[in-house]
Amino acid sequence: MTTSGLAVETRGLTKRFGRHEAVSSLDLDVPTGSVFGFLGPNGSGKTTTIRMLLALAAPTAGTISVLGSEMPSRSADVLPRVGALVEGPGFYPFLSGEANLTRFDAAEPGTSSRTREGRVADALARVGLPAAARKKVGSYSLGMKQRLGIAVALLSPRDLIVLDEPTNGLDPQGTREVRALIRGLNADGTTVLVSSHLLAEIEQLCSHAAIMRTGRLVAQGGLDELRGTTAAFELETPDAERAVGVLARHGLAALVTDDVHVGDGRRVDAALPGDVLSEDLVSALVAADVRVRGVAVRRPSLEECFVELTGEGFDVER
């Protein structure tokens, strides 16, 4: 499985709690080097899956491979290469942020105590917490705890970082910083698996994504694949009828939308197939003396794809 180019690969992964099936035969493929969005409403089985990937919980059925090694049997070799934030941060409230990181660093076998202080200081610096390093974690805000949780994942260089809802409790500024941090990590070659129930929040970040719903995988793949190859082509022009003719010659079935117009301009909508370039359409329109006032190519958001795939809103299930 080492040659598969997948940082995480599950086959038929299933987890049952009593009669409740939290995860149902999941085939997850996280490509090495990707930023992988693991999406789904609350209660869709994302965190349970992540717990199994990290050997915290044993699968009821199925296989897991993380960084090319089988889990949970090889967890002692795999986990030092993995950093993770799972279901919110967990800390000793009576210890300082620095002492908490020191504790987790000391718990990792094979870390040198000589350089521990440096690793802790670096991790704190990367999440912007040096000023609060000596304060007790009990006095931290939720956002600060979240940052400290990310710092734990960054104590040692990792090949895979798993972040479960990393922007929980963060303000917009903190959310942007987390995004920048993830991009930075990914640029250094780390595969990042980010789970979230807020599609819009991490959509701009991911190269790949998987969408979960009630324990099942609804879709996964590259982001463009997921969004579909069809985009919407929107044109604003006073020469609507002529434009429809031009677009038809390029294989686009266009519609004039009467109720949306400014002055004598009218809107023409068409579905843009993946093999047609919008710039070719525009030059063809201009060549045919269509007065082009505005053109927009709108690709559906992941959220719209999700609604289309499931026919339902992105809300809490069960």
């Binding site: 076998p109 094979g110 870390t111 040198s112 690793r119 670096d122 040692s156 250094d188």
Partner: peptide, 25 residues
């Protein structure tokens, strides 16, 4: 996280060839 661009310093983390599994720390 304003220092997000600071590269991860690589000091520490014993080489993977000889990882002591000590319990002392």
């Amino acid at each position: 996280m304003s220092n997000a661009e600071v590269p991860a310093a690589d000091h520490g983390r014993a080489s993977s060839t000889a990882r002591p599994r000590g319990i002392g720390a």
